[in-house]
Nucleic acid binder design. Structure first.
Lengths: 107, 107
DNA sequence: CACTTAATTAAGTGTCAACTTAATTAATGG
DNA sequence: CCATTAATTAAGTTGACACTTAATTAAGTG
């Protein structure tokens, strides 16, 4: 699913939508009112966000309330951390560099 | 810069490149040898990755060694954490839900 | 200096996805 | 059941971008 999540959050307008629904659920039209673009365009964005798992819908009558789904970010978080969080690897590299300098001075 | 980083890592082949240079630096051609696509295509990907700040180049003669630049992920990590890491907000939501149930039983 | 190696930039092509307007679905209220 | 409201799906257009091959830059090496 990480493929879909990255694709979903790569689009600037979709990230704005995520910011809007981060704290409170909003209807499709309430979201659309924050933008210049048409309601169908928003609807299409919401579909992408929902199918990637980063938002959920609650239906009530003719309205649909969108809100964030935090677990949807779990995989991408892990992915990013593989690159960022690697303090162990940094130490490993330092050790290797140390090793290299030793070897050089012996040659 | 988050805009550029997200765009950079959104592309599947660029993520594969990141995996390759995650642990050790590699030349452009060494990277290209892992793929079916042409060397210029790889070069273009590397440019995007570099300009977004997630990789760095070290030039040595005619060769260019690419390696990961971990700090490049700092902003995107923070961004993701704003959605994921919000355990406080989850508690807040639970409290609100509790509140809602109380109100309902009073009506 | 010509030749080779490593890589990039240039220029052009096809695909995809973010929009548009128009049409459709779905739930509710008189 | 018709009208209204909320939202989506459909169909078509446009621009971006991931490729391609060809040309260019740059750094050694005989």
């Amino acid at each position: 699913m990480i493929e879909k999540v990255i694709h979903a959050i790569a689009e600037p307008r979709r990230r704005e939508i995520l910011n809007l629904v981060r704290d409170k659920e909003l209807t499709s039209s309430a979201i659309a009112s924050h933008f210049e673009i048409s309601a169908p365009a928003i609807s299409q964005h919401l579909k992408v966000l929902e199918e990637s798992g980063v938002v959920v819908v609650r239906r009530a009558g003719t309205k649909r309330y969108y809100s964030i789904r935090r677990e949807g970010f779990s995989e991408i978080k892990q992915y990013i951390d593989r690159f960022w969080d690697d303090s162990l690897l940094l130490l490993k590299e330092a050790a290797e560099e140390e090793e290299r300098r030793k070897n050089e001075s012996n040659e």
